[in-house]
Design a protein around this nucleic acid. Structure first.
Lengths: 200, 200
DNA sequence: TTCTTTGTTCTCCAATTGTTCTCCATGCTA
DNA sequence: TAGCATGGAGAACAATTGGAGAACAAAGAA
């Protein structure tokens, strides 16, 4: 998506401002800086920037803030949750997690929060954060994010069969492995690492 | 969490003040410095700083104190391995792991590599890296690093009994809980978070 | 003890701020 | 021409903040 002139001007101003001050400007400040006399007009442009993901609205009257792209250099996006049998539930705003390099692969990764207990026997618990490397193929035995019939996403151990079909194996003795024709299963990524936070 | 303008101003003032004096400023001093006429108003801002973890309230009338955070630049030390029934096996050279802040507690932490399967049913696997906050007490149900008879170290779930004895519970149905008189068990730390790396 | 300082909690208030709305102007395109 | 996207003005609104000030509790000081 491309920005209109005004949107670009606002975005530029925000960047400049961020280099000099720790606080975002208020809408009134922005209006003065850009020669606008109506906060309402400004607001529309800001909305557009929010939707473009370049800026986040703060709670209360704390102005707006640039999305920290610097952080993105070191961090990875947290895209949402994955629960067996559902589509991936995206976060409204992707969060960026600083993850040390030794927990990443050589490729750009992303994070998902695990919901459910389908992989509990290999130590992947409800609420854990898994780091995924996007890939469309995987080897036998790898734990993958798989999309079934283009709708359900799930985290399972993969097994490719000789006849081309694949099994998705839940590591939970209460759940049987499911076997699908190859065309119904699409690999989206491979598990690289895992983070878990215990209660403080 | 981002600070509001006032909060930032207060925090800046505290930093400046700390460079020149050993005692923190009183609330009245802060009010004068910031041009406030009500201690009550100031107090709200300070509360926010406390909640943000940037400042700690002192006991009595000793003002507030800045929290020092230097230790995070270099990461946390990886001290070695912990295997049930053995002393902690120290690394010849402690390695320093860069660990993101959200996986640490407010105190300086260290890391250990888990050996064995004694906590497998709560998702702590052989080879996992656990982040530990050093402490000498813990609450019931917390997972702790405990030193038994001053020689064996182990990672177990803690249960304090009324008679003063403690149980160390392995989360593995093949291992029975072990109960000790209090004086034989020394808590060394509490589990804060966990990292796991899958094979590339 | 009594008094003073200090930190804390509370209620109340006004100004600022972000948001939503309607209405309008301009330029571009089909 | 009509339709559409962009850009703006201004009114009105709700929420939040930042602040004042009273009252109180705790800790020292006299």
């Amino acid at each position: 998506m491309t920005l209109t002139r005004r949107q670009q001007a606002i975005y530029d101003y925000l960047r400049e401002h961020a280099e000099r001050f720790t606080h975002p400007p208020t809408h009134d400040e922005l209006c003065r800086a850009l020669g606008l006399s109506s906060r309402g007009s400004l607001h529309k442009h800001i909305q557009a920037l929010v939707e473009a993901g370049l800026v986040v609205a703060q709670q209360g009257r704390q102005g707006i803030r640039l999305v920290e792209w610097e952080q993105q250099d070191t961090g990875i996006p947290h895209l949402g949750t994955i629960a067996a049998g559902r589509p991936i539930q995206a976060l409204p705003q992707p969060a960026f997690l600083p993850v040390p390099e030794f927990l990443l692969s050589r490729h750009p990764c992303y994070a998902l929060t695990v919901k459910g207990e389908s992989m509990i026997e290999v130590g992947i618990m409800d609420g854990d954060l898994v780091i995924i490397e996007p890939r469309d193929t995987a080897r036998n035995g790898e734990i993958v994010v798989a999309l079934i019939n283009n709708e359900e996403a799930t985290l399972k151990r993969l097994q490719n069969h000789h006849d081309g079909s694949v099994s998705l194996i839940a590591e939970n003795r209460n759940m049987a492995p499911l076997r699908y024709p190859a065309e119904q299963v699409q690999i989206q990524g491979v598990l690289v690492s895992l983070l878990r936070r215990y209660q403080p």
